[in-house]
């Protein structure tokens, strides 16, 4: 029972991460795309936690939700916010 629950949870989180990745790809506003990308990373962190890799979770959350969006925001500030066709 617990295995089925774990697998169902993993599947749900994986699908959510794919949706967030898709939204990040098609989004024209870079800041919103960065937020979607951070949501995708948070979903990955959940997957790592369920798969019993707490060390990876501890480094993945600050790097992918804190530092990478910060770097991308600085880069967005230096370039353009909206993606033109």
């Amino acid at each position: 029972m617990i295995e089925i629950f774990t697998l169902a949870f993993l599947m749900l989180v994986s699908i959510a991460s794919v949706i967030a990745a898709f939204k990040a790809i098609i989004e024209k506003d870079m800041v919103r795309a960065i937020v979607y990308s951070a949501i995708q990373s948070a979903m990955y962190a959940l997957i790592f936690y369920v798969l019993m890799a707490p060390d990876i979770v501890l480094v993945y959350i600050p790097v992918s939700v804190g530092i990478t969006p910060a770097i991308l925001l600085f880069v967005t500030k230096k370039t353009e916010r909206y993606d033109g066709d």
Binding site: D55, V57, L58, V59, P62, I67, A70, L73
Partner: peptide
């Protein structure tokens, strides 16, 4: 669970916050 690299990246978040 944890270690030097994990702690360092967590502490960096606060510096990013302060700079922003």
């Amino acid at each position: 669970p944890g270690g030097g690299f994990q702690a360092g990246s967590v502490a960096t978040v606060v510096i990013v916050l302060i700079v922003m």
